[in-house]
Design a protein around this nucleic acid. Structure first.
Lengths: 209, 209
DNA sequence: AATGCCGCTGACCAATCGATCAGTCAGCTT
DNA sequence: AAGCTGACTGATCGATTGGTCAGCGGCATT
């Protein structure tokens, strides 16, 4: 029978140590020796389990991605009125980011670094589902019949995710900016972003100069 | 008399090569030997001019920051009607990013990596001016008297910068997302983001559930 | 012509990198 | 007890890392 502490493999401890270090400092700044030390293991054992540094990195990345999508989908299942659903979506996405910062940084670094080759795979396998779910949420909320000149739902998803990701990565800088107090008042931030998104859905005024 | 080709120092060529490589791959993934090779110089010469790898990195970073702020301030000096000024600001910020991608990536990486210690310095010396200028633009545009329950200008600046930075870093991924065609149609993107920002400035409807 | 300075180089250094190796040990099967 | 398997280790590999150093050649000054 397994122990009550979830039965930590040696391989699991290595994966966790690697996830922390890769998330903090990136692929190149972390050495196998560091990971082995943090995991309480030996260098050779890492190669025994994962074969190469790159393979370990991909294993860690894939696990991070899988857990991330699970979290996100749970966060926006409710069927409430529009403003509550939007706030829920913002809060959910924010939670995914701040609950496991190393994982979030790991994934974003991968996006930044990925050339055109890996980008398509990342879009399909990693972010496609989340983005589609968010897009559908905005499409559902939008007042029927006003979809003509309005901002498309997928772009509202872009706005939501962009603001959250920026807040996550830069909040240490943002809070020192003039008028950047919102970076430390999460509820206030959610309210403001929700206002922006909702108001740009109803608008149907003169859209052209 | 200097040559017509701007008189490239050996030191200048090193700086340029380093800026390219650091921007592409980050600090740790780039070696002095790589930089020397790309610059057509020798390893030892780099240490002769800059003393250490870290010093070279900071020199490159500081130069990138200085040039970036200059570009941005020019981009939004005009005094047109609100929608045109907003579009101008979006386009200006976008130009800063895409005109010199290595520089932009260099700076953003520094923001991501910087702990609380360096974050305040970065906020004051690097982004403070741009952010303040953008904030003032939105404050000017906002209809007088409606500043009560409205979204504050500094948050609109956050939205603008977030969306642009996200588009810049992730556009290879975004264009493969369902509904992500806007990532490749810059004018369309500007129009949509402008709509979002403008409509959330006029809104004064029921702001609470 | 001798001087000092400066941009620059090849050879070299200790340290560390990712990776491989032979080999130890515990547990399972027969 | 014999045999096998898989987790694990210390020693070690060649390559590469950031960094040092003595010295070269051109150029201006004296």
């Amino acid at each position: 029978m397994e122990a009550a502490t979830q039965a930590f493999d040696g391989a699991d401890k290595i994966r966790r140590a690697a996830a922390d270090l890769f998330g903090e400092r990136g692929f190149d700044a972390v050495s196998i020796a560091h990971i082995a030390e943090r995991a309480g293991s030996s260098k050779a054992n890492i190669f025994h389990h994962f074969g190469s540094k790159e393979a370990l990195y991909f294993a860690v990345l894939r696990e991070a991605v899988d857990r991330s999508t699970d979290h996100f989908r749970d966060a926006m299942r409710a069927e409430l009125d529009p403003s509550q659903r939007v706030e829920r979506a913002i809060r959910g996405s924010l939670t995914v980011l701040f609950e496991d910062p190393e994982r979030a940084r790991l994934i974003f670094r991968e996006i930044m670094e990925s050339g055109p080759c890996r980008a398509e795979a990342l879009a399909n396998e990693v972010f496609g589902d989340d983005f589609t779910a968010l897009t559908r949420l905005f499409a559902d909320i939008q007042p029927a019949g006003e979809t003509e000149g309005a901002v498309p739902p997928s772009f509202l998803a872009h706005v939501l995710l962009s603001c959250n990701v920026m807040l996550f990565h830069c909040h240490q800088v943002l809070r020192h900016l003039p008028g950047g107090e919102y970076a430390e008042q999460q509820e206030h931030y959610i309210k403001m972003l929700s206002d922006v998104l909702l108001s740009s859905m109803r608008a149907k005024q003169e859209t052209n100069a």
